[in-house]
Simulated scan of single mutants.
Amino acid sequence: MTDEQWGAAVRLLWGPPAKPARGPKRGLTLERIARAGVGIADPEGLGGVSMQRVAGELAVTKMALYRYVPGKAELVSLMVESAIPDPGVVDAAWAEVAEAEGWRGRLRVWARELLAGFRGHPWLLEATVGARVMGPRELGWMERALAALDGCGLTGAEAMDAVVLLTGHVRGIAEQERAAGGGAGAGAAGPDAQLVAVMGELMRTHGEQFPALGAALASVAEHGGQDQALEFGLERILDGLGLLVARRVGGADR
């Protein structure tokens, strides 16, 4: 984004947007425009979104749409803010987390809810990268994760890095699911299961070259455990954070 686009995005996301100096009375809302873009991106991805397409969905001219949104970059910013789940879902879920689970339980909930958001709108993975203006909802997700770590003895930089680490893990799982053509609950085998099936075929003819891999795949086939990458990685990240927290608060891993 250019400096001018940064300013436009801030006005659109944090409002109120500047009123046009001339032209007919505004008949659309930013919410309607964002929903129209999301309605295109969900089945087609961001590549299907254009100012022309969104204008057509709203039954207005492209020039009329430009009176509300300066361009596609700002349109995508509005779409992200509309599609990202309200971070209030985390607050509601936290109410069900046992007190004994402490910060670990809160971050588990946070990570699972974030993954659910990416699963619902896979194009968010592409739209939420790089330097850009973030809206209240997106910043709200970061706020919730940092709040979960409050009182753990971490510095602000460490807490931020912990959130980045967790987000990277969630995004990685969502990216794999997207590449595999679906995620949990999508009616198809998850990416781990698909990979195991493909490698299993290779091991039948080339297994002698990869004995450790063959043994691991045989164990998966016998005992299960595929498609648990989110939970396995999440617990290992939390274990590592727990060691740091324990050192900072004198041995209390909470």
Score class of each variant (00 low, 15 high):
residue 8 A to T: 01
residue 11 R to Y: 08
residue 14 W to L: 15
residue 17 P to W: 11
residue 32 R to I: 10
residue 32 R to W: 04
residue 34 A to D: 02
residue 35 R to L: 13
residue 36 A to W: 01
residue 37 G to T: 07
residue 41 A to N: 06
residue 43 P to E: 06
residue 45 G to L: 13
residue 50 S to R: 11
residue 53 R to D: 09
residue 55 A to Y: 00
residue 55 A to H: 01
residue 58 L to D: 08
residue 59 A to D: 03
residue 60 V to F: 00
residue 62 K to D: 08
residue 62 K to I: 01
residue 65 L to I: 10
residue 71 G to D: 10
residue 71 G to H: 04
residue 72 K to P: 11
residue 73 A to I: 05
residue 80 V to R: 13
residue 92 A to K: 11
residue 97 V to E: 06
residue 98 A to I: 03
residue 99 E to F: 04
residue 103 W to A: 12
residue 104 R to E: 11
residue 106 R to M: 05
residue 107 L to C: 09
residue 112 R to E: 11
residue 112 R to F: 03
residue 112 R to L: 08
residue 113 E to D: 08
residue 123 W to F: 08
residue 124 L to W: 08
residue 125 L to A: 03
residue 130 G to L: 09
residue 145 A to D: 02
residue 149 L to F: 00
residue 152 C to K: 09
residue 156 G to C: 04
residue 156 G to H: 13
residue 156 G to A: 11
residue 158 E to G: 09
residue 160 M to R: 14
residue 162 A to H: 06
residue 168 G to W: 00
residue 168 G to F: 00
residue 173 I to W: 04
residue 176 Q to W: 02
residue 181 G to F: 07
residue 184 A to F: 04
residue 184 A to C: 01
residue 189 A to P: 12
residue 196 V to K: 01
residue 197 A to L: 06
residue 205 T to D: 09
residue 209 Q to Y: 12
residue 212 A to L: 14
residue 212 A to E: 12
residue 213 L to K: 02
residue 216 A to S: 01
residue 218 A to W: 01
residue 219 S to M: 13
residue 220 V to I: 05
residue 227 D to Y: 11
residue 229 A to E: 13
residue 232 F to Y: 06
residue 237 I to L: 11
residue 241 L to F: 10
residue 243 L to A: 15
residue 246 A to C: 02
residue 250 G to F: 15
residue 253 D to A: 09
